[in-house]
């Protein structure tokens, strides 16, 4: 069971690498931002799998905080894209 969870964890990390491919290769700036957004969501899945593996619940707190921080970051990037000042 632990080895199977390990395989799932490696698959998830490989998916993060796919996001990195999109961030590096993306032809335009919004493509890269989509990659950053999806990367932030994938990390929560990694946190969940590590929680099941180790049995320590505080890792889920890291996941929740990561979601909220990634959300704020994406909103800031979107504001930058549409050409507005940050205090509007």
């Amino acid at each position: 069971m632990t080895s199977f969870l390990n395989i799932l964890l490696y698959i998830q990390i490989a998916l993060c690498a796919a996001c990195l491919y999109r961030i590096i290769r993306g032809p335009t700036i919004p493509d890269r931002m989509v990659g950053i957004d999806i990367f932030g969501i994938l990390v929560v899945g990694i946190c969940g799998i590590i929680t099941v593996q180790t049995g320590q619940a505080f890792i889920l707190d890291i996941g929740i905080a990561w979601v909220i921080l990634s959300f704020i970051g994406t909103l800031t990037l979107a504001k930058y894209l549409s050409g507005k000042k940050l205090n509007e």
Partner: peptide, 22 residues
């Protein structure tokens, strides 16, 4: 939390990208 933040972030990104001229 995941549902709300992901959908709102996608909406903001799509709108920003359209105004950016993608």
């Amino acid at each position: 939390i995941l549902f709300f933040t992901a959908t709102v972030a996608a909406h903001a990104l799509a709108r920003g990208a359209y105004h950016f001229g993608t």
